[in-house]
């Protein structure tokens, strides 16, 4: 079985390398012809993220996944989500507001948490009317991320979860510190009127 995982991992590694070559060619063309192909690059990066997420899911399902904790400055993390998503959302006339009220560093798995939040913002983007809001704040021993939108909210609660959300919930639970573990909650409690994705990390 280890062999299958190795084959998958090395295939994904090669594919991401090729996507990077493609992205560099696109960005080169943008510069040379003064055109904006950000949406093409966004699609490439989304494809790469999908593949990584698939590999992570597989590892988590086989209980072979281990978090890589790094102290990450929370506001830096929010800035990366904004950089990854804002442009794309603007194309669809959606605004992404980011509010980060903590200047702390937090021990978390940077790439996995960024992917979870990117995925949450993308999901919100499918249902939002005009705006999405990402907030990050410290509540006692927990770091709380919320993604709110002004869409119609979930039709059923709890909503049926796709692979991305199931994985996010599992990864949240894997963040453990001082006897607390992380959690993921989906609700219709958004002050913007729509759905809320709430990720709590110890």
């Amino acid at each position: 079985m280890q062999k299958l995982l190795d084959i998958l991992a090395s295939g994904i590694h090669d594919a991401k390398n090729q996507l990077f070559i493609a992205e560099s060619l696109i960005s080169d063309a943008e510069k040379r012809h003064s055109i904006d192909l950000a949406e093409a690059r966004y699609a490439l990066e989304s494809a790469a993220n999908r593949m990584s997420r698939m590999l992570t899911s597989y590892r988590v399902m086989r209980h072979e996944s281990r978090l890589s904790l790094l102290p990450v400055i929370v506001s830096d993390l929010c800035a990366e989500i904004a950089l990854d998503q804002r442009n794309h959302l603007a194309h669809r006339n959606l605004a992404l507001d980011v509010e980060c009220t903590t200047d702390e560093a937090w021990p978390l798995d940077r790439d996995l948490v960024i992917d979870m939040l990117n995925n949450a913002v993308q999901n919100a983007g499918r249902h939002a009317r005009q705006r999405i809001r990402l907030t990050a704040e410290q509540q006692g021993e927990m770091l709380v991320f919320k993604v709110d939108d002004d869409g119609p909210g979930f039709a059923n609660l709890p909503p049926s979860r796709g692979t991305g959300l199931l994985l996010a919930a599992e990864l949240a639970r894997m963040h453990v510190r001082r006897g607390h573990c992380g959690s993921l909650t989906l609700s219709n409690g958004s002050p913007l009127g729509g759905a809320r994705f709430e990720l709590r990390l110890p």
């Binding site: 991401k16 390398n17 996507l19 990584s52 890589s68 790094l70 798995d109 790439d111």
Partner: peptide, 23 residues
Amino acid sequence: GEQSYEQVVSAVELVPDDYIIKP
């Protein structure tokens, strides 16, 4: 190109200034 380097960075003493995942 892969996340596994993150495992290295999070463990070891001697780290680069940062790492970035392609693409």
